Structure formats: structure tokens, C-alpha cells
Computed example of a mutant assay.
Amino acid sequence: MQLDILGVGAHPDDIELGCGATIAKEVHFGKKVGILDLTRGELGTRGTPEIRLREAKNAGEVLGISLRAQLNLRDGFFINDQDSQLEVVKVLRKYRPKIVLCNAVRDRHIDHGKGAKLVSDACFLSGLRKIDTGQEVWRPKQVYHYIQWQDMIPDFVVDVSGFLETKINAILAYKSQFYDPNSKEPETPISSKNFVESVSHRARNLGRIIGVESGEGYVATRYPAVDRISDLI
């Protein structure tokens, strides 16, 4: 199966938080989208890897994605080395996505910036013929970075009006991680009601800036291009 878009996150729930509405919209319009989690999120304060795996499956069903996979790199300790790069290259060559969406280039969690560089580097390496994985070479056409905890000025904003509710529902599929007034788990920076509300606030603010209901912002490491100026809204 060839994917149109592959979303990659260091942890289960990174994709839902960073670009869940974009993915829901692309699925709605018939694109094949997959998600790759680099780790199991085993260092998370709340929940367990097994619980998060079930939650990730449920979140993927909410978004309507075609597949979800995990590389089982070490949460908190994975590095951007040859072994890790080759594992990502194998996924890229297997599913041949045209677009890759990956972690923020810098962020509060150390895995996010590391994940961004690892995936970006792997996208380049995947196109080199002399790297032999027993697969045909493949290089995605575009690599974009979604925005996470740290506010950033996006290079472009996607209109996700009508898909914000799906994004929030996908986030809340991670019941162990986010706001639950009945939870006995320790409080974390993402477990408050305010955090979930902030996700909607950011999307609506980005939408306000571009003149639509809601938006998701992205950082690009090379200039985005459009075919015609009239394509811009």
C-alpha cells in the first residue's frame, strides 16, 4: 500500500495533537494516511505502553487512517544514529508517502526536536540508491513540521475548518493522558482541562489569522510552492 501522507511522532498522541485535524481532512477527501510512532511512550507519567497502544488504535479509528505502526525506539533516549535512521528509511520505502508530517523542530520535550531531525534526515537518506535495505529507493516530496507545546510562527497554515472536533475526539481517545476529573493519576502538564482547551484556542486563533474558522500551522525547512497565486486563500 502506498500512502499519500505519513505522520510521524516521537510518542503516541503527538500526531493527534500536532496535525490531527489536517489528517482528518485529508482522509475525508480520500487520501491514504498512516501514522508512525517512534516510541511506545513508555516514560509517560500516566498510563502504560499497553494502555497507550490501545488508545493509539482508538485515536487512529477516529481519524480514519489506513495504518498505524510503532518502531519501539527508546522513549527519552533514542538518538539520531544510523540504526534509527535505517529503521525509518525502511518504513518510508515500504509505504512510499508523498508527504511526511513530523515533530516540531524544537520543543519542550527533548524527543520532539530529536524526532524531527531523525525523520527529516531519514527522508533524505531514503532517496539514496547506495543505501541497501532490499527495497526500492523512495524520497518523500515534502517534509513539514507541525507545532507542539512551544508556540512558533508557522510558515503556512492549513484551513481545517470543520475538522477540529474530530481532532479533539482523537486526542481524548488517550484517556490515560488527558483531562479526566475522575483520574487518580498524577497531574502532568498535559492532563489539565486548560491544556485540552488550549488546543482548540490555538487552532481557532490560527484560523482567525488566515480568515477561516480554524487552522493548523506548519514549519517548512524549504520554501513551500504553489502552482498559481490564486491557490492561496
Rank of each mutant, 00 (worst) to 15 (best):
M1D: 07
L3K: 07
L6P: 06
V8P: 00
G9D: 00
A10D: 08
D13L: 02
I15V: 14
I15Q: 04
E16V: 06
L17I: 15
A21M: 07
I23Y: 04
A24C: 12
K25I: 11
E26G: 00
F29D: 12
F29C: 09
G30Q: 11
K32D: 12
G34M: 05
G34S: 05
I35P: 01
D37R: 02
D37C: 14
L38Q: 00
T39W: 01
E42F: 04
E42I: 02
L43D: 06
R46L: 00
G47M: 08
P49N: 10
E50W: 07
E50F: 06
R54N: 15
E55N: 11
K57S: 11
V62N: 03
V62T: 08
I65Y: 07
S66E: 15
L67K: 12
A69K: 14
L71D: 11
L73A: 01
D75T: 00
F77R: 00
F78M: 03
F78A: 01
I79S: 12
N80W: 00
Q82S: 13
Q85S: 11
L86V: 11
E87I: 00
V88Q: 02
V89Q: 06
V91E: 11
V91L: 12
P97G: 10
P97K: 05
K98P: 01
K98V: 08
I99R: 10
L101A: 04
L101T: 05
C102N: 13
N103C: 13
N103L: 05
N103M: 09
V105I: 15
V105H: 03
R106A: 14
R108D: 11
D111Q: 01
D111F: 00
H112V: 07
K114G: 00
K117Q: 11
L118R: 04
L118F: 04
L118N: 04
S120Q: 10
S120V: 02
A122K: 06
F124L: 13
I131W: 08
T133C: 14
Q135M: 15
V137C: 08
W138P: 06
R139E: 14
P140A: 13
Q142D: 10
H145I: 07
Y146R: 07
I147Y: 02
W149A: 15
D151M: 14
D151P: 08
P154N: 03
V158M: 10
F163C: 09
L164R: 05
A170P: 05
L172Q: 12
Y174I: 03
S176R: 06
S176Y: 03
Y179M: 04
S183D: 03
K184C: 04
K184W: 03
E185C: 04
E185N: 11
T188S: 07
I190Q: 01
S191F: 01
S192G: 11
N194V: 14
F195Y: 15
E197I: 09
S198V: 08
V199Y: 02
V199G: 02
H201R: 15
H201W: 12
R202Q: 11
A203R: 03
G207F: 08
R208E: 14
I209A: 10
I210G: 05
G211W: 14
V212D: 06
S214W: 05
E216S: 09
Y218N: 01
A220T: 14
T221C: 08
R222G: 13
R222F: 14
Y223D: 13
D227V: 10
I229Q: 13
S230Y: 08
S230M: 09
D231H: 14
I233F: 15
I233P: 12
